[in-house]
Simulated scan of single mutants.
Amino acid sequence: MLIVLLTKLIATAVVVIGVSLAVGRLGPRLGGIIAGTPIILGPGYFFMLQEHPPAFIQTAALSTLHALVATLLFSISFVVTAGRLSALRSLGIATLCWVPAALLFSRVPGGVGVAVLMYLAMLLVAEGVRRVLRLRQPVIVARSGWFDLVLRGLLAGVLVSVATTLAVKSGPLLSGMLVGFPVGLFTIGWTLHERYGPDVARATVSMAQKGMLSLVAFGAATATLVGHLPPMAVFLLSLLASMSVSATLFMISQRRFRRAYASRYGVVDR
C-alpha cells in the first residue's frame, strides 16, 4: 500500500512540475494552451481508469464536476476576502466554503448536463463579482519559483495518491471530490498574495475561472465516454477535449487582446 501511494505521489508531482515548467518555456501561445490541461485531474483519472470499473469512474467524474462548481465558489470567496485578510486566512475561508458546497452540489439530482449547467451559472456569478470589484489583468508577470512548483507538485501528488488509493474505500463520490480540490488555485493564491500582494493574487485567481472550463470538459468527457470505450481511449479523448477547450479560450483571449490593442493605438487588426 505504501509503495503504491509513493508511486502515485511521485508520478503526479513529476507531471505537475514538468507541465508547469513547460508552460514558462514554450512561449505564450503553446504555454497558454498547456496551462489549461488537467494536470491534477489527468493523473488522478489515469490511475482510476486502470483500477476501477466504469460505474465507479462515472460516479467519480460526476462528483468531480460538482467539486469544480464548488471550486468557483472557492475562487469567489478568495477574491472577495483577500483584499482585507491575509493569504492563509482568505484561503482558509475559501476552503471552508468549498467543502460543504462540494458535498451539497453532489446531492443535486441530474447527470453531466445538469452539472455543466450548474458550473456555467456559477461562472456567471463569478464574472459578476469580478466586474463589481473591478478586477483587471495584473501588470506584473508573475513567474513560479522552485518553491511554488515543488509545493504544488507535492500537494497534488498527496491529493491524487490519497484520492485514488485510500479514499476509494469510501466510494467514488469521495475520490472524485478529492481530485477536484483546487490545489492549483490554493498554491497560486498563497504564493502570489505573499510575493506580489492581494491585487495580483485576486486578479490572477479571477482570471483562472474561465480557464477551468477545460477541466469541466475533461470531467464531462470522462463521465460520458467511460464504459463505451477502452480506458486509455477514454483518457486520451478526455484530454483532447480539455486541450481543445483550452486552445479555444486562449485564441479568443488573444483575439480580444489584439482588438483592444488595435483600438487603443489605431492599428489595423487582421
Rank of each mutant, 00 (worst) to 15 (best):
F181Y: 15
M243T: 15
R259P: 02
Q209C: 08
L215V: 05
L192A: 04
A220C: 04
L124E: 04
G176I: 00
V234P: 14
R255E: 11
M212A: 08
I140V: 10
L159P: 14
L159H: 06
G219H: 12
T164Q: 07
F186V: 02
V158D: 13
V205M: 03
F147S: 06
R143D: 07
A241D: 07
A221G: 04
E194S: 07
T165H: 12
L178G: 05
S242E: 05
D148P: 03
A241Q: 11
A208M: 11
T191Y: 11
E127T: 00
D199W: 12
Q209A: 05
L185A: 08
S206K: 06
G197I: 13
A201G: 07
V216Q: 14
A223W: 08
L123W: 11
I252A: 06
A217R: 01
F186M: 08
Q209L: 04
A233N: 06
F235S: 12
L174R: 11
L166I: 15
D199Y: 11
S246I: 14
V226S: 03
V162S: 04
H193Y: 12
G128V: 01
W146N: 01
R143A: 02
E127W: 11
R256L: 13
R131Y: 10
Q209P: 07
V183D: 01
G184T: 14
S242D: 03
G171F: 08
L151D: 12
R255D: 14
D199E: 10
T248Y: 04
A163I: 04
L192K: 08
S175G: 13
V132R: 15
S161E: 07
T204N: 10
E194G: 02
T248H: 01
Y196Q: 08
G184A: 14
L151P: 12
E194A: 04
G145Y: 00
L192H: 08
